[in-house]
Write a protein that binds this DNA or RNA. Structure first.
Lengths: 231, 231
DNA sequence: ATGAAAAATTCAGTAAAATCAATTTTTGTT
DNA sequence: AACAAAAATTGATTTTACTGAATTTTTCAT
């Protein structure tokens, strides 16, 4: 991690767009633009919470270790997204880690200043609450998926979720590069099983895999896989 | 459901204790105290969101159907607790159901009035946000449990969570009456498997079951079961 | 360019938990 | 108190996905 020369415009992100104009100079002073390399750990489980992160450019995964060699990916975030926001609650330490998936520039705001910002800007507070509400919805939905869906359903669900977060390019490729291990960790299964299921989906022509790039050829079919399981 | 004669004091609940005094008369006018019978559905999946509920007295489960005969219990709430709060986000309809576990009196606040209350009372908004943050934390923790823990770990985790929500009496009995099906649904497993695992825990002397009452005799052992699985 | 390390691929064996089926007990209603 | 319905109990069977192991390919740093 190092200080970034690529400075944000103090205008368009979640934070800046929801603050009153008069507050922005204060944000300008307190924000820190930081660069992280691909694969670099931004914060780790157990680290003290220092503040909140807004992604200016890049992609991040939020994950949690499980045993020695397993992990669950909690969520992904990309440009314009927030992470480390759970530090704003009672917890003094992060229960999760965050890792850059590619070269990433973030805007970091110290916890104390962020709390002041919330007090000064009711709109920011309200929208943050809505963001939480939404995250909670997502989280509970995934909880249900993990509890009752087969691995195939979970992988399908994971792919659609990735589409939602990162979008598809003109050839239907997911605009993100993930290892198979990441797919498995996000689906809550093992490497080998995820791999097999991906092959099934390729055979069924709903997915195409070229190297690390994944194309969703038939999202309807993926949706069907999911619904068939909730029959 | 019928109007309750058992009226709250407009003072001690999450809502009232966080509003400025001047706002309470407005709350008094808008609140609706309602009674629900044991097993009565308070709202169902797909129902339009009308408002938010505060439990004055009683116990509630929030759950989601899965297939024809399966369900996952998302969370429990008891006196002083909140539910239906996710209606405050973008969703127009509830993605979950809420059912009274015993005779329950709630304080119901219409969505629109509640949103006004948030605008008028920044402390309320702030605390609600903290509540969300906490719920999110819980939810993501459970997500991890469901993804990687064995049924035994999940049942142990479920029991400790119940202890957290409802507490134990002087003989270590959980202060709530649940069917075995509810235990299974909260652990994210089937009836039969949950039953078998409960028997194991009884054999290991960490749990005692008398009728529908469950006593936690050795929470340390339950904790060990959980940690052994995250080795 | 080269070798080491990491990631991907594949297969066979195994363990965990879901499903199915049948019986007993409890609960709630009339 | 008598009955029907729901919940609890138990065992046998089947399915699913995890584990471990062996091989190939890719990636990355030197």
């Amino acid at each position: 991690m190092k200080k970034s020369k690529d400075l944000c415009d103090v205008k368009s992100c979640f934070l800046c767009s929801l603050c009153v104009k008069e507050w922005l100079p204060a944000v300008e002073i307190h924000k820190k633009n930081l660069d992280y390399k691909k694969g670099e750990l931004i914060f780790g489980e157990g680290d003290e919470v220092k503040g909140i992160y807004f992604i200016y450019k890049g992609k991040v995964k939020v994950h949690q270790k499980w045993g020695d060699d397993k992990e669950l990916i909690i969520r992904f975030a990309t440009s314009g997204g927030i992470f480390g926001h759970r530090g704003i609650g009672k917890e003094k330490n992060y229960p999760v880690s965050a890792t850059a998936l590619e070269p990433t520039t973030v805007c970091f705001i110290e916890k104390e200043f962020f709390l002041s910002s919330l007090k000064v800007n009711p709109t920011l507070m309200f929208e943050l609450m809505m963001f939480y509400s939404n995250e909670l919805q997502e989280s509970e939905k995934r909880m249900k998926d993990l509890a009752h869906m087969s691995v195939k359903g979970r992988v399908a669900s994971c792919l659609l979720s990735l589409k939602n977060t990162f979008g598809l390019d003109e050839e239907n490729f997911l605009d993100v590069t993930l290892s198979r291990q990441d797919i498995a960790s996000f689906s809550g299964t093992t490497y080998e099983t995820a791999f097999r299921v991906m092959n099934e989906l390729v055979t069924e022509n709903s997915v195409k895999v070229i190297g690390k790039k994944i194309a969703l050829l038939n999202t309807e079919h993926l949706q069907n896989v999911i619904e068939r399981e909730s029959k």
